[in-house]
Nucleic acid binder design. Sequence first.
DNA 1: GTCTATAACGAGATAGAC
DNA 2: GTCTATCTCGTTATAGAC
Lengths: 198, 198
Amino acid sequence: MDDPRAGPAPAADTRGRVLDVAEAMAQTRGFNGFSYADISAEVGITKASLHYHFRTKADLGRSLIARYRGAFRAALDAITASGGSALERLHAYVLLYASVVRDDRMCLCGMFAAEYRTLPAAMQEEIRGFFDENESWLAEQLDEGRRAGELAFDGLPRETAMILLGALEGMMLVARSYGDAARFEASAKRLIEDLRPG
Amino acid sequence: MDDPRAGPAPAADTRGRVLDVAEAMAQTRGFNGFSYADISAEVGITKASLHYHFRTKADLGRSLIARYRGAFRAALDAITASGGSALERLHAYVLLYASVVRDDRMCLCGMFAAEYRTLPAAMQEEIRGFFDENESWLAEQLDEGRRAGELAFDGLPRETAMILLGALEGMMLVARSYGDAARFEASAKRLIEDLRPG
DNA sequence: GTCTATAACGAGATAGAC
DNA sequence: GTCTATCTCGTTATAGAC
């Protein structure tokens, strides 16, 4: 039985458990907001052992984004394959974000985007890649939906995709300050519904 | 001749210069992304002297937000007093954000919202206050605009205000990863134009 | 693969002279 | 107000034993 959420199942191996713990901390406190000591305490191995699995913190950071992108890609593929309408697919996309907010987290790459200037180049590249992929996927759904007469919006699909991605990231960011997941869900739902024709 | 931008004029006194430098660093690298040593190097006084002006970094953080809120409030008042239409006022509001992105910065409070969980309670309160104020102002403009038949949207003004604020913060966040101010400006302009009836 | 021990550095903060 | 000097602690990272 597969876990229905977007994220990976809790890992049994040490490396995986480290990534799980680091990911939670990164999404909550940012990349500069946690240390090897923090992970060490939670996972139950020493700081030195962590360096065996991830030689530097930058390595850990890259692995974090790579895994996150992979999980997100899988989730997008699952939505695309589900056979729903474009509107339904967009709502499913929003649910991905909603589950993150409900977990009291921020999107990993949205969080890293704030710290962008302090991060190693390799991480910066991965972050842009995440945004690119999301925009492309969104643009595709928007394009199909408009052709089918199911959605209405002006201009290029990519332009509206950029607005949607930015809006979802920002609404997460602000909602988290209020610890209010319902606030995010209501706003996000309306954001998508506003794409209906008429 | 007043500076036409939203921010304060470059300060002549030491305390003001420290705030200027710290603000730029906070908006670029985040509150956890700069140190007293960084400010010291740029302002040209020692770390110890900085502690004379701001006893702790948390103090500096609170002063930073307080000043930012004050400047923003003044900018909003200026827009409200300018006598433009609701649509024009919303476009003027977007220009406030655009000038920040052009400076290669993130909204101070948007940045702090990402680091929210790592910040002292006094700063957290100020951040929520900033968002509240912005939403209230936006809701007011939206309400007036709709009553005048100049704007069209469903539901309560406050709901759309929340979406607008979140969208602008998030679009800044993402655009900054691309170092692309034009991208932000185009998306933000469309966001407002989509509020036109029809 | 995990440990102990430690290096090397930067952080925020304070004491006290000028 | 600003300085020098110093403290204490937390940070990433390494060496080498088990």
